[in-house]
Each structure stands twice: as C-alpha cells, then as structure tokens.
Nucleic acid binder design. Structure first.
Lengths: 344, 344
DNA sequence: CTGTTAGCGCGTTCAA
DNA sequence: TTGAACGCGCTAACAG
C-alpha cells in the first residue's frame, strides 16, 4: 500500500470557523458547537446538515477558544524522569491508554531525575491549565509543592509513599522493599552484601532501608558502587567489576535495576563465577527479561502499568465527578513482590 | 529529605491575571506581558517591580488566551505506535530533549500500529493547533493525509522513506534492510531461511524486501511466523518453537526485533542447539542488550535517538525561521548497519 | 430543540 | 520604554 502518490484533492478551506460551518448549514454557530460536542441535543435532521457542512468546509475543531472561555483543557500532564527505563515506558503506555479512553490528551514532560528540571516543567505545564497532573516521586522543590498545593486540579504522585502527599498517591514503600530484601537474604544465609545502584533518589531510599535493616542485625554492607542514570548493561558490568576488585569476598550484589543486575551477572559469569554459589545477584523491576537470563534473575517485581493505570484512573474519577465514596482511596499502595528464580 | 511536612504558606491567589499583576505593580497589563516574555524591552526598574508583583500575586502564566489570540501553541505532537518498544522510547527521549530546549512542549499520542487510531489522534491533536507534528511511518489513512496536506505547519514522517512524503522525512529504507540482510546471509552460506516477525507494517516491508532479494537467487523462505505486537521474549520463544516444529532443518531465523531474537535464542539453546552452527539468529534494532546475550546477538542497528533528534530539529528549524538554504534536507536517510556478533 | 448575548485574558498593532 | 484599543472563536447562560 505504500508508497502512495499524492492525493488529488486540494486543500480545503483551512481555519474554517464554527460560524463558517454555521453559515454553510444555515444554522447558528452554537448549534454547530452542540452538534460537534453534544450531538444528542440536536435534531437528527439538523445534525445531518451540519455534518455535511463540516465536510464541505473542511472544518477542524479548535480547542484554543474553548479553553480560553471555559478553563478546561482536556489535557493531563505526566512528568517523569525518563522514558528510557522500561518501567516508566510501561507507565506511560498504561496512563496514555486510560486517558485517551476518557477523552484526555497526554502532555509529557521528562525531568531527568532533577528537581530543578521538574520545577521548570511544572511551571510550563501549568501555563496550559491541565485538568490533572501525574508526578513521579514525592520529592519536589518547595516552589513546586507550593504551586501545586495552591491549585485545585487533581494531582497524583506516583512510585512512592509519603505521609504528606500533595493530593493523591499511587506507589509503594521503597524502605519496605529494603527491609523485605534484607530479611529474606539474611534468612538465606548471606552475610556479605554489596550494593550496585544508579544515582536515583528512590533507589537510594531502598538501599538505605536495606542498610538499616541489616544494621539492626549487626551486619554492614561491604561495598557500594553508584553509577549514573540511565542504567545500562555496560554500567552494570563495570560496577560489578569494581565491587569485586575491592571486595572479592562479597556474596550478594543487590542492584537498583534489572538492567544493572543483568550486566553484573554477565561480568560474574565471564569471570567464571558460579551463580548463585560464588556470587548471588538480585535485581529490581522484574522486567520481562528477568525470567530469561542465565540463570533466571531474582528480582523485586513492581508494576509500572498498574501505577500508570491507577494514576490516570484516579484523575479521571475526580474529573468525571465520581462521588468521593465510590472513588479509589487517595493513597493506594501498589505493593511489590520479591521473586526468586535462581540468581539468589 | 522526604517525607516532608506540609508547607506553611497558604495558597496564593489562584488565577491571578496579567491585569492583577499590573495593578499590583502600578503598570499596564501589556507591560507585564512584555516583562514576562521579552524582558529586554522593559526598563530594569519596572522589571523589578513587576517581578515582585508576580510573586505577590502568585501569578501563573496562562497560554490559553495567547494561543487563542495568536494561533501559536508552542506544542509539538509526537504520534507513534507504542512507547514499550525501546527504539521508540529512545526516540521520545531525544525528541523531548530537543523540543524542550527550543521552548516547545510535547504532546504524545500512542496509536498501537493502527491506522484508524492514528486518524483519530491526528484529528484530536490538530484541535490544539500544534506548531508541528512528528508521525511514525508513511502509511496513513486517506483522511489523515488529506488533513495534514491541507495545513501549513511542519510535519515530519519518521522511520521510513517514501517518494511522496507529506512534508519532511527522517528514516531509512526497510526494503533496503531486507536486501542487505539477504545479500550478506547468502554470502555466509545460509540457504534455509525462516522469518519470525511481529505484526508491524514496517517489519513486513523488511521481510518482503528480504523475500524478494532471496527470490532473485531462486531461494524461498522456508517458514514465517507472525506474532502480535508488542513483541516479548516469550513470544520469541514460542515463535521459534513453532518454526522448528514445522521445519527442523532451518538454518537461520531472521527476527523483526532484538526482543524476539533473544527469545528465539533462548528457545534454541534450551533445545541444545548450538548457535550459530545448528541455528543462526538475526535481530533488528541493535538494542543495548544485543552485545550481552549468549552468544552476542547479530542485529541490524538503527538509531531511535537519532531519528527523534533529527525530526525535532527539522521542526524547530522551520519554526525558528532558519532560511531554507541552511536547513537540513526535507528527506534525511538515517541509515542502518548490519552488525555481526556471533549469532550468525 | 435553537438562537442571542456576552465574555474569557492574552498578544498585536499602533500611537505616544 | 510604555500604553490603549481591539479581536481571536468558542461556549455558558439564558431566552424563546
């Protein structure tokens, strides 16, 4: 079907307005507006005339005056660090689907894990008067918090929990992840822990939780290696190599993402280490590939799609006037799950 | 730093307008507008007064009236099939960076490889009068083409080449990929080819190109297996299993993505097949992980970041009035590269 | 079911 | 360097 020659039809009248359509249809502008937005309020005959006139004039809807007049933009902003991390890509996909279904469009802002970027993005985004905002994390600049608290649209913070959300919250406790991992790995007999983490605030929280939990058992993390975001297999290999160089006797490397973990495994295997006997490795995210590495990767499963869908859902519920009693709670713990597959 | 208690400051006056700020600063609204958008046209003293008034009133910019009045939205729409495929995620990231730098915001639409969804998305997106549009592929509905041809904003089609672009084009030839792969694999001595492909129009084009090139040598593809999008490792395994069940003697499986290829490799290895001697496998995309599979995956490298950056760049150049002579060409071939690593 | 009136709050254009 | 007048095109509110 492709390539295709240029279509014969010539450009229609661009920028036809409602009045143009109205004139062509022999009705008033407001009737055209109704025909387009609330067709059930218009008599079928009139509707047909108007539809013909729309085609004839090549009319394309124009939301700018509508937004100006009504202050409803049908826009929802999603602000996240990056879309290169598959857990965020999943979130975007799920949020986009839900929002599109509900008649909203997605304004995307990527903040690269930097609070100051987020601040700028929020300010820019607010200039479009979005009907709702989805943020990543609960760590924002004071300006951002103040600005967001002063407005009355639904806001969802995601991927985290906090006692002081700006508005709504969909996520899980990163400290709790650390606790759970510590408890389980101690049970399995590991004592010499290393951390391989990307430079990401939520990952740090998980590892602080881990260290605290280990500390309560009198155990210290032997070594920590921090790599820049976004993580890659290469960074995982290199990080693992540094850890092993400094501390050849570590038993377990806990990684802040599956990608780092897979890179670390590659390094370990290439050195002839047996996994998990010589070196155990734990990932985070539990991405699709975790079940398909050699050996299959143990990982903490979190669900980006779920977070995206729930966040979008929370916003749409508010906007469509679902009564508070029937809405999802303002704080939703999406949970996580430690999955063991053979690398620990 | 987190959790954080609620900030003490109370909500400022929401929806303060330029006039409110003007009153507080003792100037006219238009001067405030200038102070915000073209500060160099305002005397420093006045500027300072206005900045104070902005803080005092909690003024937040409002683009709606501006858009209504001027028909420039500072919005660029990016329409693609999905963001779950990392090559598209790379593209989004790169495009977003470029556009943000140039002062534009990103409106994201996901069309799931379906032309009718794209048609709806384009129509919806046009209602916001974006300053530019980036599309994926060159295959659109007649309505979409007609609509887009009738408007005068910069439009870039991506990930493909065609003699009849709507406006600008950034991509590579999928038929050419097929040709190149065929030529090289024939040279290496493979004769019994199988195809494992996701249900995606550009992938199909590549495989048609492959089949045509093989046909010219009197060789037929032994078997084809089509899986739904989005691809996954699991689908790759299953597809490979089906191919081997039907035709145990195939020598080479050419996959429409690295993900499928890796899944296929997993299946082959689990059956005790040696790669590439018993079965060779070729991927597409050359994602980061391709170099880190066992054996490392041969793949056709394409660069999503490059495509995203060039597409955004082309739009910005037009919008910022770079003279045609200094602009990038309307059609840019981003090329591809066959990388052999050990799986072929 | 359809029409009339009025106003949303900016930026553009021109004048001072 | 600053200001005044105007209009962008739609929809809310009310009337018929």
């Amino acid at each position: 079907m492709d390539p295709v020659p240029p279509l014969p039809d010539q450009p229609r009248i661009t920028n036809a307005t409602l009045s143009d359509v109205a004139r062509a249809a022999g009705v008033s502008a407001i009737t055209v507006s109704r025909a387009l937005n609330q067709p059930h309020l218009v008599r079928p005959g009139t509707l047909a005339k108007i539809q013909a006139a729309v085609r004839e004039t090549g009319y394309a809807k124009n939301r700018a005056p509508a937004e100006h007049g009504t202050d409803r933009s049908k826009l929802v902003a999603l602000i996240l660090p990056t879309v290169a991390n598959p857990i965020f890509a999943d979130m975007v996909q799920a949020a986009s689907d839900k929002l599109t279904d509900a008649g909203y469009q997605l304004l995307l802002g990527l903040a690269s894990y930097e609070v100051w970027r987020e601040e700028i993005l929020v300010e820019t985004v607010l200039s479009r008067r979005p009907d709702g905002i989805i943020l990543t994390g609960t760590l924002h600049s004071d300006n951002t918090r103040r600005r967001l608290q002063s407005i009355s649209i639904p806001i969802v913070e995601t991927w985290d929990l906090t006692p002081f959300p700006i508005d709504m919250l969909v996520g899980f406790s990163h400290e709790e992840v650390g606790n759970t991992v510590a408890a389980r790995m101690l049970t399995k007999g590991y004592r010499r822990f290393a951390i391989l983490t990307a430079d990401d605030p939520r990952a740090s929280r998980r590892h602080l939780g881990l260290q605290a939990a280990l500390g309560r058992q009198g155990i210290e993390v032997v070594a920590t290696d921090v790599v820049p975001t976004p993580a890659s297999l290469q960074l995982g290999r290199e990080g693992c190599a540094r850890l092993l160089a400094r501390h050849p006797d570590i038993e377990l490397v806990i990684c802040s993402s599956d990608t780092l973990a897979q890179g670390a495994m590659t390094e370990a295997v290439s050195r002839g280490l047996r996994i998990p006997d010589d070196l155990a490795i734990l990932g985070f995210g539990d991405l699709n590939f975790a079940a398909h590495t050699y050996p299959p990767l143990s990982s903490v499963r979190v669900d980006g799609s779920l977070i995206g869908a729930l966040a979008a859902h929370a916003i749409v519920e508010r906007l469509t006037g679902v009564p508070p009693a029937k809405r999802m709670p303002a704080v939703t713990d999406t949970g996580f799950q430690l999955i063991e597959r053979g690398s620990t």
